[in-house]
Design a protein around this nucleic acid. Structure first.
Lengths: 193, 193, 193, 193
DNA sequence: TATGAATGAGTGTTCATTCAT
DNA sequence: GATGAATGAACACTCATTCAT
């Protein structure tokens, strides 16, 4: 007699959004944004093609939403180390967290890297990524300074480069043959003392 | 009206191939493989759309050819340092050459990175890239060993990661604001002794 | 919580129908039937997308209902002059009413013209329009005959053509630059005496 | 051994363009621009869907091309009466030509009217149409002035309105029952003196 | 060898309509 | 009666590829 309650509608919405974004993340990570069609996403999610457009204005808006969520999650992760006062402990935690993320949430990086290296994706996205990376460098710089490392900004860039380079080598080139754990250990020890 | 000689034909073939691949490299580097159409390549090269198919079986075959050439060229570059006997000099030469390449032949990396990070491109390509990178690591490993660096294989991975990571940061994220020269100096001094 | 009475239900029905048709008329007139979506109509009316289908079988049925109402209203307008005995007065009243309608109820014409000129809209609609226009010509013919105009049927067609042509010129081509008032005066004076 | 000659290519192009535009004109006239799909046009023309895009950038560009051609043709027709010095003869010729066009090239008007009355079609098109109509009014005004008709500009609008109104009545409402020939005669005699 | 017209499968996107509640 | 999430067919448009010459 009465329409569905607001809660019911909201639950249905969230369920659908989740199905769509989950499928999209998996597919984007595996095949790359440009190689994945809306059709594929819909089929994988088990919904109709049109449904995506109830929640996202375009395929790119979907990508933007996904990457925003990831960036936000990454931000939260970084925040969670904020309270640690010992810079050496903080450093170790951050590096370990990065490698853990890399091992356990491959789709995280696998979604972002192709987008970064693909020209022709939205300006908005590019700017968001640049902003996030810059913030990260800033955070690392402060930390390295607290560790009395000389030339902390340049070292922050180097640390960033090592982490990114390791991620690329692991995800795209050497895969399971990449000495990920040894690299983790090596990086930590380099700065540790 | 007289029939062309074999040599003339061959010269014409080479000329056409060159026009096509040169245009393709430029366009792939600027817009990315998936965002560039055969039509664009043909127009830029000043030839007909169909001509490409006289020399390459598909768009992907063209990409494969281009990247093969680049990998080969990179191999030649590495070879050219083979004769240097002082490992420290060799090390410095290699690192400097890498950064020079990065600064002066952006299209080199800008073509390769999106392909590496885009799964869904041919298996053949992936394997070729892995092979090349493995060879590079091997070369660096031997060199580091000669420099009496401890754990030379792991350090080779670290050096590779730093170079790749710097390339990505420079090309895609920070661009002209990336401290490329300082990074070059820093890397050399780290191992220089 | 007590069940609504029949009258209350009927009132709610009428209210909803009115909200929907009013929004539809405005939107059809401004953007054209084919350019307006059910979603737009629902949003403008402040109701749900599905509600329209409680009252109309389809989007076209809604259009049919709207145009029927307009035709009926036009018929009423014509009827209202029926009592006037002096044919010259009647003529002037009718012409003035037509121009007033054109100036003050643009959406009236702006809804109907695109439908008339768009073939491919329902046969039913086409027939209804033809019927209404034929009736109008009949009424005018009688009136012109009473005015002792020679060849009253042909003159009725001419008068109809002038009114329609003026409407089109005003609404779609020249807009505010169309000499609407002068045309009104000119038409009246042509037959007035 | 050699590619097709330029003439052969040009001939093929013209043939294809003609097939496409001819089909489009017929379909637009019968069903209206917005009701006709590219698929329909291609099927009717007996070519692939994609071919249209070799010649026109978009569906709207096709419409623009068609209407431009029509407007140009109409302009030529008007020009052809330019040399006539007797304004009465000129007037009769123009009116007769208009009616002949209406009878023999229905698709001419049937293509244009729905576009004029359909909001949401390109601004460019709207402006082109307005420009053409204004020019026509100007030409008629001068002619009527030469005929010593009082208030020639207003009469030009009236004549335009009558012609347009007759066209609409004939094409969309009364069709074969419309007294087209009588109307033609009536209009000529009204001004003929 | 070289041309470019032609194809057709595929793309992202829209929208009238249905239906469980 | 009313809701709005969901559907699926349709749309305009793109593009790698083919082929007659």
């Amino acid at each position: 007699m009465s329409p569905k309650t607001k809660e019911q509608f909201e639950a249905a919405r969230q369920k659908s959004i989740e199905k769509i974004t989950d499928s999209a993340v998996k597919l984007f990570a595996e095949y790359g944004y440009l190689n994945v069609s809306i059709n594929q996403i819909a089929k994988t999610a088990g919904v109709s093609q049109g449904l995506m457009y109830n929640y996202f204005n375009s395929k790119e808006a979907l990508l933007l939403y996904i990457i925003s969520s990831m960036m936000e999650e990454m931000g939260h992760l970084m925040m969670s180390f904020h309270a640690i006062t010992d810079p050496f402990e903080k450093f170790e935690k951050i590096v370990r967290a990065t490698f853990t993320l890399l091992k356990e949430k491959k789709e995280f990086y696998a979604t972002i890297w192709p987008v970064i290296t693909q020209q022709g994706v939205s300006q908005q996205l590019q700017e968001m990524l640049r902003h996030t990376f810059t913030s990260l460098i800033d955070v690392i710089e402060v930390m390295l300074k607290d560790m009395n490392i000389a030339n902390p900004r340049l070292e922050a860039f180097r640390l960033g480069a090592m982490l990114d380079g390791a991620a690329l080598g692991y995800l795209y080139v050497f895969k399971e043959e990449y000495p990920l754990d040894e690299m983790e250990q090596l990086i930590i020890q380099t700065y540790k003392k």
